[in-house]
C-alpha cells in the first residue's frame, strides 16, 4: 500500500508584478507518496479554496513533462531535486516525512512574474521569431528522402530538439542566461541540411534577440545542464558559440 507523509510548504505568494510578494506557510497531512508534485499543489489548492482563501496560481498543462508549461524552484533547485525531471513528473516519494519544502517561481529579468508561481516566458517566443525556423512554405517541399541525413547528425539534432522551452536553464543560471535554450534551437537546425542555408543569419539574429530580451551570458557554470529536464548538453552552447563566431567572421 502507498505511504503517506506530512510536509510543511513554504510557498511564494504575489498577486502581480507590481505587488510585494512573500512566503506563506501551510502544513499538508497524509500526502500520498505516489502523488505528483502538482497533484500535491492541487490538494493544497482544494484546501485553500474550501477554507475561503485564494488558491495558488501555477502554470501547468500536459503533466507528462513535454509541454514546458510547469516549473518552479523547489528547495533551491529549478524543477526540484530529481534530475532530468519537470515539476509535473516529480513525485512526493522523493520527500521525507516532516520535511519543509520551499516553492518559489523561476526568477529572471527575462521572465517577469505574473502571479504567484506564474511567469511570462514570451521572451522565448521573441528569440524564436528572430530565426528559430526554416524558411519553407508548406506544400512546396520535396520528398523527405531526397536529402539523406547522416544518422549521427539526425540523432544529435534530435537530442537538441528535445528542448521543451520550460526556462529552467534560465532560472538556474546565475547570469539568467538563455544560452542553453538558444543553443539547443540553433544546434537542431544547424545540424540538419534543411537548416543550413540560413544558419549564419539565424545564429546572429537569435543571439541579438536573446540579449535584447534581457538574458545574460554564459560563464560555464553548467547549472543549466544540471536542471534541464531533457538533459540538453552544454555542448549545444559550444556549438552556438561556434555558429555565432563563424557567422560573425564570415558574414556576407
Amino acid at each position: 500500500m502507498a505511504k503517506t507523509i506530512t510536509i510543511t510548504i513554504k510557498i511564494w505568494r504575489q498577486s502581480g508584478a507590481d505587488f510585494q510578494g512573500s512566503f506563506e506557510k501551510h502544513v499538508l497531512e497524509s500526502v500520498d507518496t505516489d502523488m505528483s508534485f502538482l497533484e500535491m499543489l492541487d490538494v493544497l489548492n482544494e484546501q485553500l479554496t474550501l477554507s475561503g482563501r485564494e488558491p495558488v496560481a501555477f502554470d501547468h498543462d500536459c503533466r507528462e513533462g513535454i509541454c514546458g508549461m510547469c516549473g518552479a524552484v523547489v528547495n533551491g533547485t529549478a524543477h526540484g531535486p530529481e534530475r532530468e525531471t519537470t515539476l509535473c513528473q516529480l513525485h512526493m516519494r522523493h520527500f521525507r516525512d516532516g520535511q519543509t519544502i520551499t516553492i518559489e517561481p523561476f526568477r529572471a529579468k527575462g521572465f517577469p512574474l505574473i502571479k504567484d508561481l506564474i511567469i511570462d516566458r514570451s521572451a522565448f517566443d521573441q528569440v524564436i521569431i528572430a530565426g528559430g525556423y526554416v524558411s519553407v512554405n508548406a506544400g512546396s517541399a520535396q520528398d523527405g528522402n531526397s536529402i539523406p541525413v547522416a544518422q549521427a547528425n539526425a540523432e544529435q539534432a534530435m537530442d537538441a530538439a528535445a528542448c521543451i522551452g520550460c526556462g529552467a536553464c534560465v532560472a538556474a543560471c546565475p547570469n539568467a542566461a538563455a544560452m542553453l535554450f538558444v543553443g539547443a534551437k540553433v544546434s537542431q537546425l544547424a545540424l540538419l541540411p534543411q537548416g543550413s542555408p540560413e544558419r549564419k543569419r539565424r545564429a546572429l539574429s537569435m543571439v541579438t534577440a536573446m540579449d535584447k530580451a534581457g538574458f545574460g551570458n554564459c560563464s560555464n557554470e553548467r547549472e543549466c545542464e544540471n536542471v534541464c529536464p531533457k538533459s540538453i548538453s552544454i555542448r549545444n552552447i559550444a556549438r552556438l558559440n561556434r555558429e555565432y563566431l563563424r557567422a560573425a567572421f564570415t558574414a556576407d
Binding site: 526554416v134 523527405g144 539523406p148 541525413v149 544518422q151 534530435m158 537542431q188
Partner: peptide
C-alpha cells in the same frame, strides 16, 4: 521534414519507419 524536424534516419540517411497499432507493416516515420 523541410521544417527541420529530426525524424529518425537509417544509416544510409533515408527515413526510418516503424509499425503502429492496426498496421501490419512498418510505414510510420
Amino acid at each position: 521534414m523541410a521544417q527541420g524536424i529530426p525524424f529518425a534516419r537509417e544509416y544510409g540517411g533515408t527515413l526510418a519507419n516503424r509499425s503502429f497499432g492496426g498496421a501490419q507493416v512498418s510505414r510510420t516515420f
